[in-house]
Design a protein around this nucleic acid. Structure first.
Length: 297
DNA sequence: AAGGCGTGGGG
DNA sequence: TCCCCAAGCCT
């Protein structure tokens, strides 16, 4: 049993986080008024599991080259994978190309603004769909990412970490922090996310400089240690299939002509693992057989 | 529904 | 060094 912490006044908590954000929030490219829905969509995809500092330069180059969904759709998917460079999870590039194609062909080259339509696009899930609807179009939706879940777990629920994700429960919890007015709701989404990103961080939270330290239920309860279910630790990257996939894909990115099986043998010694990685890339559509070798799609 | 999927920086 | 983690999604 954990000691129950009194939940703070949500309206006041929300207001104070918004106030802090207005003054201390980072000036990020996608927060500018004229950034556009396409730019916001691309940024959200790139930000899935990739840090802000690594995204910014790649995003700028991407939008310069492909300023609209139709522009991206007109290029080969492999060009998107190549331009993705080393952002990680390259299937996101493939999905983004496919989403751009759907937007160009089925939505008159306009990024959809309703959540169900966004959810139907490849690579867009619960978080990204609501982020685009809220940040690009100002619609009033709760936006829940890992930062938001952590802030709510601590400030509202009084526990050190968020439990396992539950879309329904998480959205309902964030909804309780949203004011009625659309612009204020939009600001709240960005503000709570920002608080989790730069103050209420996973590892060493900066509780002493937190704008809501006086309301925080976790602080009130004396920072009890997390007792819930532990998150699964990711398997070691070194020597993993993921590493081999990455190495093979790097070869394909770097070459304009088919990469031969002999060349792929050079990137990894273990044949079984190599074959498994290549098969995975082919299955995912990140590589295709051509002539005597393999190329990007 | 638990596990696979890249990559690089910081403690 | 090694481990953790960074605006998730998909199956």
């Amino acid at each position: 049993m954990t000691a129950a912490a009194p939940a703070p006044d949500r309206a006041e908590l929300s207001r104070q986080i918004r106030e802090w954000f207005a003054e201390a929030g980072r000036d990020l490219p996608w927060r500018h008024d004229d950034f556009g829905a396409w730019g916001i969509l691309v940024s959200e995809i790139m930000l899935q599991q990739t840090p802000v500092v690594r995204v910014i330069p790649r995003l700028e180059q991407w939008l310069e080259r492909w300023p609209t969904p139709a522009a991206l759709a007109a290029s080969a998917p492999g060009d998107a994978v190549r331009a993705w460079e080393r952002l990680g999870y390259p299937r996101r590039a493939l999905n983004l190309h496919a989403a751009a194609t759907a937007i160009a062909e089925q939505h008159d080259n306009v990024v959809p603004e309703d959540v169900p339509t966004l959810l139907a696009l490849p690579g867009i899930g619960d978080y990204t769909a609501r982020a685009v609807a809220a940040f690009a179009y100002g619609h009033r939706h709760p936006v829940v990412d890992t930062n938001v879940r952590r802030v709510i777990a601590r400030a509202v629920d009084g526990v050190g970490e968020a439990g396992p994700p539950s879309t329904k429960r998480d959205l309902a919890a964030m909804e309780l922090l949203l004011p009625e007015e659309r612009a204020a709701a939009q600001a709240t989404n960005a503000a709570v996310m920002e608080l989790g990103a730069i103050v209420c961080t996973a590892k060493k939270p900066l509780c002493e400089q937190c704008p809501v330290r006086d309301l925080c239920a976790w602080r009130t309860a004396g920072y009890p240690a997390y007792e819930g279910k532990k998150q699964v630790v990711q398997k070691k990257f070194e020597g993993s299939d993921r590493q081999v996939r990455g190495l093979i894909l790097a070869e394909l990115r770097a070459s304009d002509i088919p990469v031969t099986a002999a060349e792929i043998e050079q990137v990894w010694a273990d044949a079984a693992q190599r074959e498994r990685a290549l098969a995975g890339l082919l299955k995912d559509g990140l590589a295709v057989a051509e002539g005597s070798g393999y190329v990007l799609p």
